[in-house]
């Protein structure tokens, strides 16, 4: 039982951080499909930073800086160059996947993965089976709560939601939707960097090409599933993590009877079903009102 909880927390935590980033963007009116790219930039920078500088803080700092920079770039392309946010987000995902691969190739040659000498600080043996959990797992509930307060219980959050739902309403009380989107995306960049770092340094201490394996998109699905509410989206992220854990367990139990590929696909099938159910229940996600185009008249 404890092992199962640990497994779910480990696979769920990176997803939660990235999901919260998606919630902020969704509230601001941007369908954020660049989460995957930001997550892998975060995962890669943390490992490479530690390997190159020997300092975990510097590694995390580089990851956060790069993710914020990439988010600001996404904002610039969407707001200033008037690009379609969905296409721009997918472009960012491509940039992240390709850029991290390029960085690894440039520094280490044709090596498939990079090992870090140590990972994030852990709770330690005093906590028994939970001792393997990293500080980011422990911080996760606090971050969820903080984002919830920010989005649902603060004036800033109301203004952010207005920017996504009715930009003109925001403008007519003197709030700039464009600037709010910059803030939301950059804050999301920080969260993606943390989610990526937890993925590569929380339990594995390794960076491998494409290691996010669609988790960014799963996080986006959790945003929609959770109706862009921080708590709902977190619950959705954990739902996906549980399905993933069940998938791994099922591989061990029934791996010889059921095709291996089918079990691997389980979390993704659950994602599709989850989105479908939430669509039937609510008629789509709140906040962002239009696909792609931002209308700010």
């Amino acid at each position: 039982m404890e092992d199962a909880i640990v497994a779910i927390l480990r696979s769920g935590t990176p997803l939660v951080y990235v999901t919260l980033a998606g919630v902020l963007a969704q509230r601001a009116g941007i369908w954020h499909l660049g989460l995957e790219g930001l997550m892998i930039i975060g995962a890669c920078s943390a490992v490479l930073g530690v390997v190159q500088t020997g300092s975990l803080v510097v590694g995390l700092g580089i990851g956060i800086a790069l993710c914020v920079l990439a988010s600001a770039l996404l904002w610039f392309v969407i707001e200033k160059l008037r690009a379609n946010p969905i296409i721009a987000g997918l472009g960012l995902t491509g940039l992240g996947l390709g850029g991290t691969d390029l960085a690894v190739q440039a520094i280490y040659g044709s090596q498939a993965s990079v090992n870090a000498p140590y990972g994030l600080p852990r709770l330690g043996p005093a906590f028994g089976a939970f001792g393997v959990l990293s500080v980011l797992v422990v911080l996760m509930p606090l971050v969820v709560f903080a984002v919830w307060v920010l989005v649902r219980r603060s004036r800033w959050g109301l203004q952010l939601t207005a920017c996504g739902e009715h930009p003109f309403a925001a403008r007519s009380v003197g709030v700039s939707p464009s600037r709010m989107r910059l803030y939301a995306l950059c804050l999301g960049g920080v969260l993606c960097a943390l989610g990526g770092a937890e993925l590569s340094m929380g339990s594995l201490q390794i960076f491998a090409y494409g290691m996010t394996a669609g988790r960014g998109f799963m996080a986006f699905a959790a945003v929609i599933f959770g109706a862009a509410n921080p708590l709902g989206a977190t619950a959705a992220a954990f739902f996906f993590a549980i399905v993933q854990a069940l998938g791994i367990r099922a591989q061990i139990l029934f791996g010889d009877k059921v095709p291996h590929d089918l079990l691997l696909a389980l979390p993704y099938i659950a994602t599709v079903i989850g989105i479908w159910i939430s669509g039937r229940l609510r008629g789509g996600a709140k906040a962002a009102t239009s696909f792609g185009e931002l209308r700010d008249y």
């Binding site: 109301l158 207005a162 739902e165 925001a170 007519s172 009380v173």
Partner: peptide
């Protein structure tokens, strides 16, 4: 405004607060 400018999902209290 002529066509009102309040986010439809807001409660009345939230609509007061956000501005």
């Amino acid at each position: 405004h002529q066509s009102f400018a309040l986010p439809p999902s807001f409660t009345v209290a939230e609509a007061m607060e956000f501005g």
